[in-house]
Design a protein around this nucleic acid. Structure first.
Length: 305
DNA sequence: CTTCTGCCCTGGGAGC
DNA sequence: TGCTCCCAGGGCAGAA
C-alpha cells in the first residue's frame, strides 16, 4: 500500500538510478497496465523509445519522468500494489511474476550499466501512461493568482500535497487550503481524501491525522474552527514526513519494495488497524466503522462527533 | 456546482 | 482438501 511517503521514497530512488539514461526499449506485458494511455499500448511504446530521462517528479501519489527536450512525461501511479524496480540488465534473473511493463534503459556517462526499469503490480490498480505536460493554474478560492505548475495533463486536477512548499505552515497557500476545507459541508475525512482539495492523503494517514488532532472524521468540515483545521493539516504533514524518514532506506541495492514495508506501519500507527486495542492516549478501545465503503478507525472518547 | 455510488483487479485469508 | 466469499485500496465515470 504505497502512500505518499513510499511514493516519495520511490521518486528519490528513481532520481538516483534513472536520470540521464535513455529509454532503448519498452515492452508492455499487460495492456491493462497502460489503460490510461490514450493511444494504446503500441503508441505508448513508440512515444517512450529514444527519450532521455531528465528528472523525476511527484505530486501526491503520482510520479512522472520528464524527458530532455520533450513536452511529454511518463506518468506512473502505483495504485495499491505497484512497484518500480531498477535492476541490472546483465543479471540473468527470472522476471517478477507480476511484471506488467519492462523498460530497458541505456547506461549514462555516470552509470554505464544498462538497466531494466520494471513496473510490477499484483492487483493492477496502478498504471503507466505518457501524458502532455501543461502549465495549469492552481485552483484555490481567491486564487493563488498567478501561480502555475507544469504537470502532466493526467493530473491537472490533482491538488498539491502537504509536503509541497506552497502548502507549508503559515504560507498563503496553507491559509487558502484551510479556507477551502472549511467552505465545504461534507465530512472532514471525505475532504481529506479528496485529491482535488489536497493530495497524497489516503485512508491510513487520514485516520492517523484525525486521531492526532482528536477530530471525528464524520464531522462536517464547515463546523470546524480555523485552528482545528490548521492543527489537522499539521498532523497530516507530520505523520507523513515521519513515515518518510522511517521508510526512506528501502531503495538500496537497485531495488524498491513499496509493498507496505516501510516499517512504519507496525510500530507507529495509533488508529488505523487498531480495532480492539486501547487508545494510546486514554486507553479507550479503538473502534472501527465503515465510512465511504472503507474502514475508519478512531477513539470514541478522544474523537467525538 | 457538489455529493455519492459502483466499479476496476488480484490474491490472501476466513469459513464451510 | 478445495471451494466460495469477502476484503483491501485510489481514482474515476456517471448519476443524483
Amino acid at each position: 500500500m504505497p502512500e505518499l511517503p513510499e511514493v516519495e521514497t520511490v521518486r528519490e530512488g528513481l532520481e538516483r538510478h534513472v536520470v540521464g539514461r535513455t529509454i532503448r526499449d519498452v515492452s508492455v506485458l499487460r495492456d491493462y497496465s497502460v489503460r490510461r494511455h490514450e493511444g494504446g499500448p503500441h503508441d505508448f511504446v513508440d512515444r517512450l523509445r529514444g527519450e532521455t530521462i531528465e528528472y523525476v517528479a511527484r505530486r501526491g501519489k503520482f510520479l512522472w519522468l520528464g524527458f530532455t527536450g520533450s513536452d511529454e512525461a511518463l506518468v506512473g501511479h502505483l495504485g495499491m500494489s505497484g512497484q518500480l524496480l531498477v535492476k541490472d540488465a546483465n543479471e540473468q534473473t527470472e522476471p517478477h511474476r507480476h511484471l506488467r511493463v519492462r523498460m530497458t534503459l541505456e547506461g549514462s556517462a555516470h552509470q554505464p550499466n544498462r538497466v531494466f526499469l520494471d513496473f510490477v503490480d499484483q492487483r493492477t490498480f496502478g498504471y503507466l501512461a505518457v501524458s502532455d505536460l501543461a502549465a495549469t493554474p492552481d485552483e484555490q478560492p481567491g486564487g493563488l493568482g498567478t501561480q502555475y505548475s507544469t504537470v502532466p495533463d493526467l493530473l491537472g486536477h490533482i491538488s498539491r500535497d502537504l509536503l509541497d512548499p506552497t502548502y507549508g505552515p503559515e504560507t498563503p497557500g496553507r491559509n487558502l487550503l484551510n479556507k477551502k476545507i472549511r467552505s465545504k459541508q461534507a465530512a472532514i475525512k471525505r475532504i481529506l481524501l479528496d485529491q482535488s482539495v489536497v493530495s497524497g492523503i489516503g485512508n491510513i494517514y487520514a485516520d492517523e491525522a484525525l486521531w492526532r488532532a482528536r477530530i471525528h472524521g464524520e464531522r462536517p468540515a464547515n463546523k470546524l474552527t480555523r485552528k482545528a483545521v490548521d492543527e489537522l493539516l499539521s498532523h497530516a504533514h507530520d505523520v507523513m514526513s515521519q513515515a518518510l524518514v522511517q521508510g526512506g532506506t528501502s531503495f538500496d541495492a537497485l531495488y524498491v519494495n513499496v509493498n507496505g514495508e516501510s516499517g512504519y506501519f507496525d510500530r507507529s500507527l495509533n488508529a488505523y488497524g487498531q480495532e480492539g486495542h486501547p487508545c494510546g492516549r486514554c486507553g479507550t478501545t479503538i473502534e472501527r466503522v465503515m465510512f465511504m465503503n472503507r474502514s475508519s478507525f478512531f477513539c470514541p472518547k478522544c474523537q467525538r462527533k
